[in-house]
Design a protein around this nucleic acid. Sequence first.
DNA 1: CTGAAAGCGCTTACAG
DNA 2: CTGAAAGCGCTTACAG
Lengths: 336, 336
Amino acid sequence: MVTLKDIAQEAGVSVMTVSRVINDVPSRVSEEKRAHVKKIIKQLGYVPNSSARSLSSRSSKLVAVLVKDDLIESPYGSQMVGHISPLIQQRDYSPLLYIVKDYAYITKQLRTWNVDGAVFLGLFDSDLTRIQANHQIPLVFIDSYSPLRQLTNVGIDDEKGGALAADHIASFGHTEIVFVGHGSDDSPVLNARLKGFQRMLEAKGLTLPPERILPDALPSVDTLVKLCRGDKPVTAFFATSDYLALKIISALRAIGVRVPEDCSVMGFDNLEFGAISSPPLTTVGQDIKRKAAFAADLLFAKIENKNTPAQNITLDVELVKRGSVVKPSQASPYAP
Amino acid sequence: MVTLKDIAQEAGVSVMTVSRVINDVPSRVSEEKRAHVKKIIKQLGYVPNSSARSLSSRSSKLVAVLVKDDLIESPYGSQMVGHISPLIQQRDYSPLLYIVKDYAYITKQLRTWNVDGAVFLGLFDSDLTRIQANHQIPLVFIDSYSPLRQLTNVGIDDEKGGALAADHIASFGHTEIVFVGHGSDDSPVLNARLKGFQRMLEAKGLTLPPERILPDALPSVDTLVKLCRGDKPVTAFFATSDYLALKIISALRAIGVRVPEDCSVMGFDNLEFGAISSPPLTTVGQDIKRKAAFAADLLFAKIENKNTPAQNITLDVELVKRGSVVKPSQASPYAP
DNA sequence: CTGAAAGCGCTTACAG
DNA sequence: CTGAAAGCGCTTACAG
């Protein structure tokens, strides 16, 4: 392994001079020496040892990307990771990817590697106060709804998204509607979507009874059958992710319910898979790439200047009209 | 920041004793001292500094996951990352995720962090000789077709996959078939699928003319129209990924070709999205999770014992029959 | 512009 | 079982 010392010897200068050349420090080295040293660095294929640098400088050039374990399996989560990593690398930092379950693990990894910053993806709201208290480094959250004031976060207007969906579905004349995908208590993202959805429905004189609010999972065949063939057959589903919406469409078809003829289905996210499915999925669109870009921007702004104030950015969402939401059929096979 | 020294002082022992407690070295510390030190470590919330350990021990407990840039956008690539990361973390290593374009970047990151091993995902075949020559650490490739003998690799039987697809499609009586997704010259994975596909077609007395072998991208509307409405209208497409297959189905529908009534489409991978699409996608299945597990196993076997021989594992593929490949319609609207 | 010294927080190697 | 010394490869801080 080639070290600073080797370069220094070879170039006939001190290690400090080499170090300064490598780090492009302003207290300039004479152009002559600089060029000479650079040549030798290249010649010997020298690569600085990051551990050594990290140890002495207390800056690791490492950014942790922490993803809640249940999220990495979703297309949304994996796309987010795919978008964020390159943005970290572009800035000459290295992304440490952790799929995490519990808080203790987070703290340990952040500390042990002395990371310069971290991006949190998924639901860490319950641990958030502790996380912020225990780490002085720049932290950026994505989709957090923590009430903490001093929080740097990038999210979207989930409530508006829910309202957009309700408005769109109701505008076709649907009255028997199901919401699929409320989270558990600690999932404010999904609950915000539900809130917006309910609010808009009520504003239109419609109600969403509790038995038509389903959790964030594919409903059982039983449940689906009951909903679609009951007294008042359901004519529209709103799912809080495209992924879930697509699964619902598939499940509905399996029990003989046609989409969109017999039943409309709407999603959330605007993933590519929705656009190329049949029927093309009507959805609430969010810009994942933009979200990732903001997260990276906020993080590095704080890394470069610790005094950057906490910012909570809320990106807009948009209605993406496609083919999976249509007028309820007058003569549904399940109607009386 | 709490250091070894702090713990040592607090416990009234030397730093070496603390170090030994932390690393559970066999030259045991007396149970009494061990317990005492552990208590203080917990009390003070001590977390070892990985940079320092890496610097002095020459083992970083870091594993690089290197993904070719074009792959991270595909569901296959992001799923693979999602599966591999936890397997690295489970072994108490940290995954450094790099989305990479070129070889120089790889070498630099591997060296600078002194990683203990690396997993390569995607096409690095052209750089592979150099990569192996320049790094003495354990390296595991996924889907590599390098002729290098001493290579640890996990792949699948791509040729068999292609053959399976051809056999299945031909068994329905299709004769006008298109292959979509041959790679550029440096994509042996896709070319192996093509080879198997062609071989089986020929064995069945069918031929695949060059103009019916399309690259790994969604064909233009023009191309699609020509293929489906030409002299001998195409009745079946085989795409080398589910993702591409789904896009083709969508594009075909956009020009009025029904799937599967007018035209069959088959994919490769067996991603969940194919299973829930309409019609459910017939495909060649591979077990991504298993592939990831093998990659991790091979990597850590080599990390734990440098003498572990190079292994090239080829996993099997299977035909997954669903609804997107059917008999060619006798009266296609495009037939004369 | 340039360099000698000290130190970052650990582990290795040696000694007892 | 236990510890004092040296060193991993850098940077910080000081001096000139």
